[in-house]
Design a protein around this nucleic acid. Structure first.
Length: 483
RNA sequence: GGCCCUAUCGUCUAACGGUUAGGACAUCGCCUUCUCAAGGCGGUAAUCAGAGUUCGAUUCUCUGUAGGGUCACCA
């Protein structure tokens, strides 16, 4: 049966279904991004569903935090827990009636039975299998006459036919699994909540989901899903299995345990939402071509599940920084102010600082580092330094002093109206070129104005500080050299 | 251990049997005003191994190797 053909004329419906067990990391957001993009591109529907059936691992506030993360990069949903929709509710713990209804159907059809063992007993079976280096299969311990299910015991799916499965995946092509992958898995836990294996299938059915974007760890459990679809005689959605995202070492799959960050950290560090989309999109997808920087709209236009990768990719923060910088460069100068000033103290919120700061950062939190390192203090107060800092290489204080005086004379007769960096550069370079080494002039001027070993060039410094301040600081330098 | 998935520069990737194996990040060098940044130009650097199919394999097949996933009352 070709599911692609059957679904071809249907409205595309995708979903992102996180469990509220903490923050979202880059992997989860990437899954959401692809599902969202596919729906948007096809004028379909994107659903946000919360899979909160594990009440033990649930972390309070996660749902809000997850929604905040998605909203930040502009992933919006058409149906979800906060806005409702035709198939509300969108929180699994509020959908128990649905699961119970389908559980009854399975029981009636002989596809489900009560599990009479305690957790400890099952644990023993499992340990034994592990010790013998065999895969653990509950069905090998299936009770002969299971009791009537009273809702207090787990309800298990009953595998009637032990077989291998083969199926088609929109990105991986043909996949298969051996019969070992098929087991009597739990449908409803003893606490009354369904397992993921069961709940997501019922929800996807009831919500009409056509494409399931999922991580590749679900390949192994696909036979469970397929056997459920068969038992319920319902059609399955198209599987779109995404490649794993590896950690920085390029080996282990990225996960919370090995340092995957809360996605909101990227907001706090001053990354741009569109840069995150751009970067995330390229972990596991590539449109061909040599263009690397895309706006959100360009990405939506190009995105296609046909170009999703099958092999895993690493997460390279250096490249993210580069992508972010490229996006910062695309911000209109007028709009840049609100991004930059947010990170600057009052006294440094000067328009002329913006270009200097922007070309030195890859993310906005770098501005804070510059401020903390006092790299910008010279903009609003006279630098502190010792006179030896003004001496360039093998010159002496007399030469430097004479050069500074020469500069001072020229600046003093310059009209205020000509005080821009191009004109200043012409003036200074003329003097600098007349010396043995241009550094004899440029270095002391730059240092007198900034007091820093590393700073913007002297011409832009003079322009920003203005004529009076420049003269004042040059005089300070000259008097330091005279001591 | 069983089952399953994967394999191109250090990293992310392009290539849909025929290319000097292309691009980006990183790195290195040079230029652009003394420094820093930005920018420009250029360099180093890859098809996991072995068989097979083919006139011709990065590409198809098999085996090996390596890495990843899974074998939960987690998703």
């Amino acid at each position: 049966m070709n599911h692609n053909m059957e679904n071809i004329n249907k409205k595309i419906i995708t979903r992102f279904a996180p469990s509220p067990t903490g923050f979202l990391h880059i992997g989860g957001v990437r899954t959401a991004l692809y599902a969202w993009a596919w729906a948007r591109k096809n004028n379909g529907t994107f659903i946000l569903r919360i899979e909160d059936t594990d009440k033990v691992r649930e972390v309070e506030g996660s749902i809000e935090h997850i929604m905040e993360s998605l909203k930040w990069i502009g992933i919006n949903w058409d149906e979800g827990p906060d806005i409702g929709g035709p198939n509300a509710p969108y929180i699994q713990s509020e959908r128990l009636d649905s699961y119970n209804r389908y559980a009854k159907i399975l029981i009636d059809k002989g596809f489900a039975y009560a599990d009479p063992y305690t957790e400890d007993e099952v644990e023993l079976f499992r340990n034994k299998a592990e010790a013998e280096k065999r895969p653990f299969l509950y069905r090998n311990h299936r009770p002969e006459n299971p009791p009537i299910w009273d809702g207090k015991m787990p309800l298990r799916f009953k595998v009637k036919e032990i077989k291998s499965y083969e199926w088609e995946d929109a990105v991986r092509g043909n996949l298969k699994a051996g019969p070992e992958a098929l087991d009597d898995f739990i449908l409803i836990k003893s606490d009354g909540y369904p397992t993921y294996n069961f709940a997501h299938i019922i929800d996807d059915l009831e919500m009409g989901v056509t494409h399931v974007m999922r991580a590749d760890e679900f390949i192994s459990s696909t036979p469970k899903f397929l056997s459920l679809y068969e038992a319920l005689e319902i059609e399955r959605p198209i599987y779109v299995t995404l490649p794993p995202i590896m950690g920085a070492d390029g080996k282990k799959k990225l996960g919370k345990r090995d340092g995957a960050k809360d996605f909101m950290e990227y907001k706090k560090e001053g990354y741009l939402p569109d840069a995150m989309i751009n970067f995330l999109a390229f972990i596991g997808w590539n449109p061909g071509g040599e263009k690397e920087i895309f706006t959100k709209e360009e990405f939506l236009n190009l995105f296609d599940i046909k170009q999703i990768h099958i092999s895993g990719g690493g997460f390279n923060e250096e490249k993210l920084d580069w992508v972010n910088k490229e996006h910062i460069k695309k911000i209109q100068p007028d709009d840049l102010e609100k991004f930059v000033f947010e990170w600057l103290p009052k006294e440094l919120q000067i328009k002329k600082i913006i270009p200097i700061v922007v070309e030195r950062i890859s993310k906005f939190s770098d501005i804070k580092t510059m401020v903390d390192n006092k790299e910008l203090d010279f903009f609003y107060k006279e630098p502190q330094y010792t006179s030896d800092k003004l001496i360039f290489k093998d010159t002496n204080s007399e030469i430097i002093k004479s050069n500074l005086n020469e500069i001072l004379d020229v600046i003093q007769i310059t009209e205020d109206i000509d005080f821009n960096k191009e004109n200043i550069k012409l003036l200074l370079m003329e003097i600098a070129n007349s010396k043995e080494n241009r550094g004899q002039v440029l270095h002391p001027v730059r240092f007198a104005l900034s007091g820093l070993d590393k700073s913007p060039d002297p011409f832009i410094l003079i322009e920003i500080l203005g004529k009076n301040e420049t003269i004042s600081r040059l005089n300070t330098a000259i008097s330091l050299l005279s001591l």
